[in-house]
Nucleic acid binder design. Structure first.
Length: 552
RNA sequence: UGCCCGAUGGUGUAAUGGAAGCACAUGUGACUUUGACUCAUAGAGUCCAGGUUCGAACCCUGGUCGGGCAACCA
């Protein structure tokens, strides 16, 4: 994960041109979440663009809480957002800002527009408002209050601010063009009355600015040079420009890029909330959730998330990236950087009949196959061990490389062992493999140089640690659960997205720190859960190894 | 439907008027004390039709297809 991906895109081309033209000395961007929900992988794309662009050009990126709607926002989200951004490895330095800190300026700016005759108070109900606005194919018509005098408008606006009116009785609108083909320019509402307590400003205000009015002003106040957002704001851009132009303030510029889409992933905030509220997942940080906190708990690395964003790039074309792309990046990272361990997910007993009853040996097992500097660890070995059920097969064909009666297999770093017979329960399931070992093959290699078909992982039965292991899989059964308009996305929930089992782990795993990542050899990548303790170990499966083993 | 945006292998992208390249995915083979990793190898692409040009993925025109917008949300 060390190699840098060169990132350039159409926005960087624009920045290059701006810099060459001497338009800016410093590039300033911003990431402006509304603190009304948890950040997800889609936000990560915006974060890497906003912070990554600032990094690339030696500028800075502000973290700005876009808290202009007191009804939706909460301090809990503010905390979580900061934690997630830090986890991704970005730092806003001292540049944490709040839209709500600009409410005074915004109010003044609104007054300035009113004085210029560019904004007015409108008394239409929201139904009438829509009626007057018209539809795309039909122009709107002028609302009754459109030509009220500036004095009257200012008086009304002040009384709005003073709390003289109920919610919804009046709204401040920009005076632009009721016949514009762009609906956003048909005298959009820019301030509304909301008698609500704001998480930051308390009860100081009962009027709050709308997104379109607030956002460009926030950018302008902070001197943001390049304000990046997703495509759906493209039609808002003329309004963004109009407001800054009319106010005659610093002209930030808005650029739009397309959202991230991933197969087998749903990112809509509303639907994520549904999963949580209906108990379909354990919470916002359920390891199946595409939230950054969920992905963190799952064991995905920030490096992998950032690399995905780099590979996906930044374009105006909306596509859908295959989840395999991400999984490949994750495996690449984890293969390189995680320590190896042995754990049995579906255990069957193997008894070495010619091995002493009460002997325990310790074998040196490498912590990483390609990185000797990561050293070795001691793993206890004894007469009875656990192996993976899938490593035995009756009458196995040559293609199958594990145990079958009469075949010799290597126990990783231990001995070559031959299976002589098996025991089965009433249902025909194998319960015990009866084997013999070759004492001359200590460490796993034979003095006579003979080869074996495979090397399998194992855990000494008397030393094994029982752990709760959560095997996660895709949350949905189809690539795009939203594609079928006839059905609800929840109809496509994968019933097998979580399987909880008790695994047999090598002893050192009990001591893992919560969050520590391991590759359980030949099984997959696992991460100690945040609730993991030595007394009750819990591991989450991040991903299986590539190409699930074919049982021949 | 009005306006806006876009279109490069199956998927994500690069090439900015001068050899269409990379990654993922897929197939085949090699190696292996992880059926992983690694390595080798194969197939597969410029939406369509015109135009400009010595030369077009790139510029122009017209289509086609896809996405977005029509909250007192952001």
């Amino acid at each position: 994960m060390s190699e840098e991906i060169k990132t350039t895109n159409f926005i960087h081309d624009i920045i290059d041109a701006d810099l060459a033209a001497g338009k800016h000395q410093e590039i300033i961007t911003r990431f402006p979440p509304e603190p009304n929900g948890y950040l997800h992988i889609g936000h990560a794309k915006a974060i890497t663009l906003d912070f990554g662009t600032a990094e690339k050009y030696g500028g800075r990126c502000h973290l700005r809480m876009d808290d202009t709607n007191p009804e939706a926002e909460d301090d809990e989200y503010v905390r979580a957002i900061q934690e997630d951004i830090k986890w991704l490895g970005y730092d806003w330095g001292g540049h944490l800002y709040w839209a709500s800190n600009y409410f005074d300026t915004m109010y003044e700016y609104a007054v300035r527009l009113i004085k210029k005759g560019k904004a007015y108070i409108c008394e239409l109900t929201s139904e009438e408002f829509k009626e007057y606005r018209g539809v795309p194919t039909r122009p709107g018509k002028e609302p009754p209050g459109r030509n009220r005098s500036a004095e009257e408008n200012i008086d009304l606006f002040e009384r709005m601010k003073n709390g003289e009116f109920k919610d919804g009785t009046y709204v401040l609108r920009a005076r632009i063009d009721m016949t514009s083909p762009n609906l956003h320019l048909r005298d959009p509402a820019i301030y509304r009355i909301k008698h609500a307590t704001h998480h930051n400003t308390g009860d100081k205000w009962c009027i709050y600015p709308m997104y379109d009015f607030a956002h460009c002003i926030e950018d302008s106040i902070e001197g943001v040079t390049h304000s990046m957002c997703t495509m759906e704001f493209e039609v808002h851009r003329p309004l963004y420009d109009w407001i800054l132009e009319e106010l005659d303030v610093f002209r930030s510029r808005q650029y739009e890029f397309s959202k991230l889409n991933l197969t087998y992933v749903v990112l809509s905030k509303r639907r994520l909330l549904q999963l949580v509220n209906e108990g379909l997942v354990s919470g916002w940080d359920d390891p199946r959730m595409p939230t950054l906190c969920g992905m963190r708990r799952r064991g995905f690395t920030p490096e992998a998330i950032k690399k995905l964003c780099a590979i996906v790039g930044c374009t105006k074309f909306e596509g859908i990236t295959e989840i395999e792309q991400f999984e490949s990046i994750v495996r690449d990272d984890l293969n390189e950087n995680s320590l190896r361990a042995m754990g049995i997910v579906d255990p069957i007993k193997l008894v070495i009949e010619n091995y002493p009853e009460d002997l325990t040996e310790e074998f040196e097992v490498p912590n990483h196959p390609k990185k000797e500097e990561l050293g070795t660890r001691k793993v206890p070995f004894s007469r009875e061990i656990w192996i993976e059920r899938t490593d035995y097969m009756d009458d196995a064909p040559n293609k199958f490389k594990g145990f079958t009666v009469g075949r010799e297999v290597r126990l990783r770093s231990a001995y070559l062992v031959t299976c002589n017979s098996v025991e089965k329960d009433a249902n025909g399931n194998v319960t015990v493999l009866r084997c013999t070992y070759d004492p001359e093959t200590k460490g796993g290699s034979a003095p006579d140089g003979r080869k074996v078909g495979s090397t399998i992982h194992w855990v000494s039965a008397k030393h094994a640690v029982d752990a709760e292991v959560r095997l996660y899989d895709r949350l949905y059964t189809v690539e795009n659960p939203l594609a079928d308009k006839e059905k609800d996305f929840k109809d496509f929930l994968n019933p097998d997205s979580l399987e909880v089992i008790t695994a047999k782990l090598e002893p050192m795993l009990a001591e893992a720190n919560p969050g520590a990542r391991y590759q359980f050899e030949r099984v997959g990548y696992f991460c100690a859960d945040k609730d993991h303790t030595p007394e009750s170990p819990i591991f989450n499966r991040t991903l299986t190894l590539r190409a699930p083993r074919k049982i021949a």
